[in-house]
Nucleic acid binder design. Structure first.
Lengths: 161, 161
DNA sequence: TACGACCCTTAAACTATCTTAAGAAATCAG
DNA sequence: CTGATTTCTTAAGATAGTTTAAGGGTCGTA
């Protein structure tokens, strides 16, 4: 468990090996995955990190993982000394922002099947390592319905071929 | 029309009077509202602004409005001279980020009725100025269904009272 | 080898939301 | 004030997704 709801996100985490998910818990106690991070990716609650306010999200390992954490003060220190690094993180934040917007729009513009297909494209590395429940939570559907979606896709493919 | 999909968002807009919406257009041509801005609020595609990459969003007036636009170079110039301003914009970006996350989670954790009720709380100023179609687009439902949601809420209230 | 735990799939019944179509209400131009 | 245009509501039928429950596969453990 890297981050718990209510705590302030005090560092960026670089995933060396393994896999993490960032998720929110709603009023009914259900968990909703917002994003994943596997090898060579960064993860953090950017909102909490930069505002230094308590996070509403959780970050948790899905496999036994090893990570490198960079803390706020060290990062800011590096920012000052390495101008390029500043830009790297800036671009990363921008990308996460745009990704979040895309996720939102896609979530109310397309059907679960379409969302699943674009999930497969977007996360080719981890799609086979995640349980059905994790993927379904990211897509905003139940694991049972994900099963059906997969079946329908298979039927369509074999039907066409 | 303040920003058109494909253009780079080159400035922040401060709404003096009137009202704007920021929206995305999906593959089927449907429009999905992401956020609104009325008097004394700022609006911009933050992703495009800071990355200087083409926007995937549009910003359009809902009423005849008057605005003040601050351009990139002027803003960066002000950043250097007024340290406090830097912080003001930083906080604004953080808040928008968190709002976007909340919108996403809420969208797949709660029913249309719940979402509508929290929309009313969140946008008390503009809730009466927006057409049904605009509100429905923000909630991710059809205007017809919004009608029904409203009716159901009324029925529940009178039923209880 | 067998057993239990866990996850994935299937199916049936149910619910939320969409689509279509029509009528009622509000807005606007002449 | 009247007709035209747009927006809002209502209702019926269709679809997407959920819930519940049951059965099958896989894997670790005794």
């Amino acid at each position: 468990m890297l981050l718990r709801e209510g705590d302030i996100c005090r560092g960026y985490t670089f995933v060396v090996s393994g896999c993490f998910r960032m998720y929110a818990v709603d009023e009914k106690g259900k968990e909703h995955n917002i994003s994943f991070a596997a090898e060579n990716e960064w993860i953090a609650d950017i909102g909490s990190f930069y505002s230094e306010k308590p996070s509403t999200l959780n970050i948790k390992a899905l496999e036994s993982s090893s990570v490198i954490q960079i803390e706020q003060k060290d990062l800011y220190h590096l920012y000052e000394n390495i101008t390029k690094l500043n830009r790297v993180f800036k671009v990363m934040v921008e990308n996460k922002y745009v990704e979040l917007q895309r996720h939102l729009v896609q979530n109310f513009s397309s059907t679960a099947q379409t969302r699943y297909l674009s999930f497969l494209e977007q996360y080719p590395k981890i799609k086979d390592r995640l349980s059905n429940a994790q993927i379904a939570s990211y897509l905003g559907i139940t694991p049972e319905f994900l099963s059906k979606v997969r079946k329908d896709i298979m039927l369509e493919e074999t039907g066409k071929a």
